[in-house]
Structures are given as structure tokens and as C-alpha cells.
């Protein structure tokens, strides 16, 4: 089966992830949507690496994983800091901050 099919699968997963980011108001769930989008991008990179028969794309996917891990650590720390201050992890609550 053509590896291009994996790119199609990746774009479907990316769309699901972006829908979750737009739709959910629980900060952690929206964050999981971001993770899914990053993973979809990784899948596309690996699929293209297979199509071209080189492993540079896999190294790129590896870099994305590292950055995603750093991003998760900082993001979850921010969620905990917001939860301590406001006792909620809803993404709509901080909208009250504006003037």
C-alpha cells in the first residue's frame, strides 16, 4: 500500500486535533488536541521520509518529539499555575481578565 495513505491519515488526525482545540473548553483536553496535531505532523514527516527513502524526515520527527515534550512540560505547568490561582482549568474563565 502506498505510504501516501499515511499522509492522508495524518491530515485526518490533524483535523480532529484542531477541532478539539477549537471545541473543548477544558484546558487539558484542548492541550491533548495540540499533542494530536503534533503527532499527525510527525506521521506525515515519517511517511514522507519513507516515500523519499531517506531518514532525514525521521530525524525531523524526532526533533518535533523533543520540542513537544518541552512544550507539554511548560504547558502543564501553566495549567497548574492557573488552577492554583483560579481553581478552574476552563479556557473561558480567563476571558474575565480583559478590562
Amino acid at each position: 500500500m502506498d505510504p501516501v495513505n499515511f499522509v492522508i491519515l495524518a491530515s485526518i488526525l490533524f483535523a480532529i486535533g484542531s477541532a478539539a482545540v477549537l471545541l473543548r473548553r477544558n484546558a487539558i483536553v484542548a492541550f491533548m488536541g495540540v499533542e494530536l496535531m503534533l503527532n499527525a505532523a510527525n506521521l506525515a514527516l515519517v511517511a514522507f521520509a519513507r516515500i523519499h527513502g531517506e531518514i532525514d524526515g525521521q530525524v525531523m520527527a524526532f526533533f518535533v518529539m523533543v520540542v513537544a515534550a518541552a512544550e507539554v512540560v511548560v504547558g502543564l505547568a501553566i495549567i497548574i499555575a492557573v488552577f492554583r490561582a483560579r481553581q478552574t482549568i476552563s479556557l473561558d474563565e480567563p476571558a474575565e481578565l480583559k478590562g
Binding site: V4, I8, S11, I12, F14, A15, S18, A19, L22
Partner: peptide
């Protein structure tokens, strides 16, 4: 959200 994400998915799939 459904429309935007669905549109994005359809756009990407049709391109690929």
C-alpha cells in the same frame, strides 16, 4: 469549530 476543522481536513485530503 466543526466547519473549520472539517474544511481543513477536506482541503488537506483533497490536496494529497
Amino acid at each position: 469549530a466543526f466547519f473549520a476543522a472539517g474544511g481543513l481536513g477536506a482541503f488537506l485530503v483533497s490536496l494529497i
